[in-house]
Every structure is written in structure tokens, then in C-alpha cells.
Amino acid sequence: MFRTFILATTALAALPAFAGEVNVYSYRQPELIEPLIAGFQQATGNTANVVYIDNGITERLVAEGPRSPADLIFTVDVARLEEAREAGVTQPVQSEILNANIPAEMRDPDGNWFGLTTRARIVYASKERVGEGEVTTYEDLADPKWAGRICTRSGTHAYNIALLSAIIEHDGIEAATDWAEGVKANLARPPEGGDRDQVKAIWAGECDIALGNTYYMGAMLADPEQQDWANAVRLDFPTFADGSGTHVNISGVAMVKGASNEAEALAFMEYLSSPEAQQIYAEVVNEYPVTPGTPPSDLVASWGELTPDTTSLTAVASNRAEALKIMQSIDFDN
């Protein structure tokens, strides 16, 4: 089977635009996408050519304008999807298949982007030092009982901005500011590293709980050097104090404005929402499928039951500028 994965530095001319092909700019790493490319080709006979880009997809599309060879973008975090929509580099897609397979809160109301998987932002808790049931809500993390016991990555990272954006949506700006200040006061150390580094810190005894995304547990368990970190923690699924579920974010897809291969691009989008592709996502990336009725992998299911917050992700993403302002105004990282 023909599958192409091209580094971001590859010349644009290296991306062909022949019939039966679709060209993709992707934040998602090639090893995560390759099984989906193979499944798409087998299901449709079309080929997908993927350029992996570490950052700046929206800026690149703006710079390329109508000359861009890209038909689709794959990205993580609803804020990046909204960024692309706001920059005018996406186009609305109308598809009964996509609308049937993807819940309304997981897609743009006008069809500019569609969620493909969800990842929950949860609490990694020390099995030795934190009892089951001690962590119940996100708001509880600002309680002084956690003073000197929390680790997290930068407060201005997209994952934490998304969580704070959700808290703004649920509790309001004033309460969200108080929450951010409370969490900062409870930190065991200044924010540093990624989510896996926080789990390592728990294992090392530097803190007792940490914010992190669920799928990192799968990555750590697959790495012999990180298995001890993973086995030192338990995943707790906080909810919001108003009774809503656990905060989730998405990976998603959007069709590029002026796409040269619209039919193939739409076919790929619809394939990605199919039970077959959703099951591949579940097994390969340790995330939760968005299509109702598609179960998570056995490994993901073993971490605990997820009841996702059903608040519109578009509404959550609309708060990201205010969330960033809060983190910067309280100097969260210092």
C-alpha cells in the first residue's frame, strides 16, 4: 500500500494533487496516523499524503493562501481548530454522515471542524499518598488541603488554558481567577515539563497529584523506562462542581478553504468518523472515540469510567483569551 509521510521542511511541490488523493497537514505524529491512512486506502481506494508539522499550521495556510496544496488539517486541541476557523482558512462541510457520527458538542455548529477523539484532562494521584475519593472536583484543587502537593505543566500551555476556559464557562471569570490563584498556591514546585514529567515527580515523591491527559498513561506503560512512573499513580476523573462531567478536549479535522480534492477530503473525513476508524483511534492513540457506541480500548477502559462534560467546546474555546489573561495576570508559572 502507498502511504506518504513527509517532514514539514519538504517543498510544497512534493505534495501531489492527483485524482484519488487527499493532502493533509497534520499536528498528529505519523505513527499515530499511519493505521488510519492504511484503512482509508483499503476502504476507498484513495491515497492520503501527510505533511507532519510541529506548529504553525494556520500561519502556513494563511501564507500559502489559494496556492496551498492542503485539503485537510489534523490537529489536537479545539483552540487550534477555532484558530484556523477564525483565520478563514477552513470551509464549512455539510455531511449527514459526519453529523450522525459526531455529537453536536464535538463539532463546529457551521461545519468548519469536527472532533475525532476525546482526551480527558484528569488528575494523576499517588496510590500511596492519596486515598480514593479524595479528588472529586476541579474546583477542589484550589483547596488549601493540597498545599505543596500539586504538580503541573505551564499554566499557559494549551491543555491548561483549555481547562481554565472550561472553568470560566462553568463558574465565571472571578471564580476562575480565584481557582487559578488557589492552584498556584498549592503547587509543590514551579510548573515545568510535560504531563509525563508530572507523573515522574509523583513517583519521585515531589508531589502527590498532578493534572494530565489520559492518553499519557498509555504512552508511559508502553515505555519500559516510564512504567514505574505510571504504576505509581491512579487516574482520578474530577468533575465540575455544578454537576457537569469531566473536562475533555479533542483531536479534530477541518477541510481547508479552496481544497483541490474536496470529494476525497470529504470521504476521508467521513471515514475517520466511521466505527472502523474510531476503533483504530481507540487502540492506537489511547483516546476515547467520539462516535457513540464505539467503546474505548480495554486499556483505556481499565483506567476508570469517563462521564464527559457535554458543554459545547465552541463555547469553551471562546474563553481562551480570557483564560490566558488570567494565567498571565497572576504570573502562574512563577
Rank of each mutant, 00 (worst) to 15 (best):
A8T: 13
T9E: 08
G20H: 07
E21R: 02
E21N: 03
V22F: 01
Y25M: 10
Q29N: 01
Q29A: 08
P30A: 04
L32H: 09
I33D: 02
E34H: 08
F40E: 07
Q41H: 12
N46A: 12
N46H: 14
N49P: 01
V50N: 06
Y52G: 04
N55Q: 10
I57S: 01
E59I: 00
A63L: 06
A70F: 14
L72P: 00
D77W: 13
V78H: 13
V78S: 14
A84R: 13
T90E: 07
V93W: 03
Q94K: 11
Q94W: 05
S95T: 14
N99V: 14
A100E: 10
N101W: 05
N101R: 10
I102P: 03
E105T: 13
R107F: 02
D110Y: 12
D110K: 15
W113N: 03
L116H: 09
T118C: 01
T118F: 10
A120P: 02
A120Y: 10
V123T: 11
R129W: 11
R129F: 14
G131E: 06
E132T: 15
E132W: 03
E134V: 02
E134G: 00
V135Y: 02
E139T: 14
D140P: 01
A142L: 03
G148L: 05
I150P: 00
T152V: 02
G155I: 08
H157C: 11
L163F: 07
L164C: 05
L164A: 06
I168E: 00
E169A: 14
E169S: 10
I173K: 12
A176C: 01
A176I: 09
A176S: 08
A176W: 04
A176H: 06
T177Y: 05
E181F: 00
N186K: 04
N186F: 13
G194T: 13
Q198M: 15
K200Q: 10
I202P: 00
A204T: 08
G205R: 11
E206V: 12
D208Y: 08
G212I: 15
T214G: 03
Y215I: 06
Y216R: 04
A219V: 11
P224K: 13
W229F: 13
A232D: 05
R234G: 02
F237P: 00
P238V: 06
G243R: 05
S244D: 12
S244Y: 03
N249A: 07
V256R: 07
V256I: 14
A259D: 04
N261S: 15
N261C: 11
A263T: 11
L266I: 13
M269C: 10
M269P: 04
M269H: 09
E270C: 06
P275C: 15
A277R: 10
Q278R: 09
Q279G: 14
P289G: 09
P292V: 05
P295K: 13
P295M: 03
S297E: 02
S297G: 12
L299V: 08
L299K: 07
E305Q: 14
L306W: 11
L306S: 04
T307H: 08
T307V: 15
D309Y: 08
S318M: 05
S318T: 09
N319Y: 12
N319G: 05
R320P: 00
A321F: 03
L324I: 13
K325P: 01
M327G: 08
Q328D: 12
S329T: 09
I330V: 15
F332G: 00
